[in-house]
Structure formats: C-alpha cells, structure tokens
C-alpha cells in the first residue's frame, strides 16, 4: 500500500512556533531570533544595541548556548531581564525549548524579546521559534563566501548585520560580493554594515529594529 502525502517534516516544531507567536501577539511582545556562526559577534552586537533599544522599549533576552552562562552574564550587566537556555551540547534551539525557556521572561512586561540562538551557521536556520523577525549576523572575519556556503542562514531572514566591519582593512572580505550573494538569496533582506567596537552602523541597526518592532516605515537605507 502506497500513501502519497506532502508534509513539512518540521510540522510539529512549526506548530509549537505558531503557539509561541500567538502568545507573543496576545502579550504585545515582538520577538527577534538572532542567528549566526560561533564568534560572529552576536552577543557584542546585542551589548551595543540593547542600551539604544532600551531607551525606546522594554527588552528581554533569551540566551541560547551549548554551555556556560557567560553570554547571559554579559547581557544581564546591561540591566535587562535575561534567561540562559543551555542546550547541553544541542546545536540549535527549537520552538518547544523556547516555550519552556521564555516562561519567566514573559512575567516581566516586555515589548521586545530577543532570542540569541546557539552559535552555528547551519542548524538553527532550520527551526522557526515563533519569532516575528529573523536577523543573521555575518562577521567579516568569517569570509565573504559564507552566503554561498550557508545559504539557508540568509534566505529566510528580514535582515543581515555584517559585523566587525572595523576589521575590514585587515581581512580579505569583499563586502560588495557578500551583499550581492545575500541579495541573490534574499532580495528583500535589510543589509547593514556594523561594528560593535567602533559603533559604526549601530544607530541605524537599532532604528531599523525599532521600525520593525513598532511596525513603522523603515527610514534607514540599506548599505
């Protein structure tokens, strides 16, 4: 007996993600899923962005990591509520893990919940967590071939923050090529060049995130 179907393999994860999204909507919370390889600079970008974002809205962070609480401690030092979600070796977050992890954070009244995913350019991009906006981080130290190597990381995102741009004079990274490749995968993605160290692009990135969270027209031009 042969049965033909067409079923999304991650249907159960996507159902849990939809439950998360509905819950966020009921509570009036916007959710961002921040993705990128290990060492791409996600936590440093958050350290630069959160003080700006916090002046406009109440921000909370769910820190996904394989091990250690060091990222949560860095974010906690900014004075925003943070919960560390350790996957204990697991290489990605899924919607059910987030469902459990976000419980205490949602007791605080938040406008924006940022989920920093496990540092990994491959696996996390496969899992919807219930976010409203997905942002990828690509550092100039990783190489400009990454959009071609890890296309899923860039295909279904609202924006890409190119990080550590202060290091451009010291590394072989063709920003125009990387951006063109991201555009090939995702023509509508917002592209911003940033540096947490020099502060370049941080104000624009924060304004863009604010415009998305507040569902206002985006006034920041893409690079």
């Amino acid at each position: 007996m042969k049965i033909e179907v067409l079923r999304n393999v991650f249907e159960k994860n996507d159902q849990a993600a939809e439950q998360n999204r509905s819950r966020f909507d009921r509570l009036g919370v916007s959710c961002i899923n921040l993705l990128g390889g290990a060492g791409s600079g996600k936590t440093s970008l958050l350290e630069s962005l959160i003080p700006r974002l916090s002046s406009w809205m109440r921000v909370g962070v769910l820190e996904g990591d394989l091990a250690t609480t060091s990222d949560a401690e860095r974010i906690g030092a900014l004075g925003v509520p943070v919960v560390q979600l350790l996957t204990d070796g697991g290489c990605h977050l899924n919607a059910t893990l987030v469902q459990h992890g976000m419980e205490s954070l949602l007791q605080s009244e938040l406008d924006l919940l940022i989920i920093e995913n496990v540092g990994n350019p491959i696996c996390p991009a496969n899992f919807d967590l219930g976010e409203h906006l997905r942002i990828s981080v690509l550092s100039v130290c990783e190489g400009d071939d990454k959009p071609q190597k890890y296309p899923l990381l860039f295909k279904h995102v609202g924006g890409v923050l190119i990080s550590k741009c202060d290091l451009l004079p010291h590394v072989e990274f063709d920003v125009d090529q990387a951006e063109a490749d991201i555009r090939t995968l995702n023509p509508s993605a917002k592209l911003l060049r940033t540096s947490a160290r020099s502060g370049a692009g941080i104000a624009d990135a924060a304004s863009w995130i604010r415009s998305v969270v507040e569902r206002q027209p985006d006034a920041v031009p893409s690079s």
Binding site: I3, L6, N8
Partner: peptide, 9 residues
C-alpha cells in the same frame, strides 16, 4: 530548501 515527507509504503 525543501524538507518534506512525500509518502510512506
């Protein structure tokens, strides 16, 4: 980017 179960026997 497909990830689908297409059938079982």
């Amino acid at each position: 980017d497909e990830l689908e179960l297409t059938g079982i026997d």
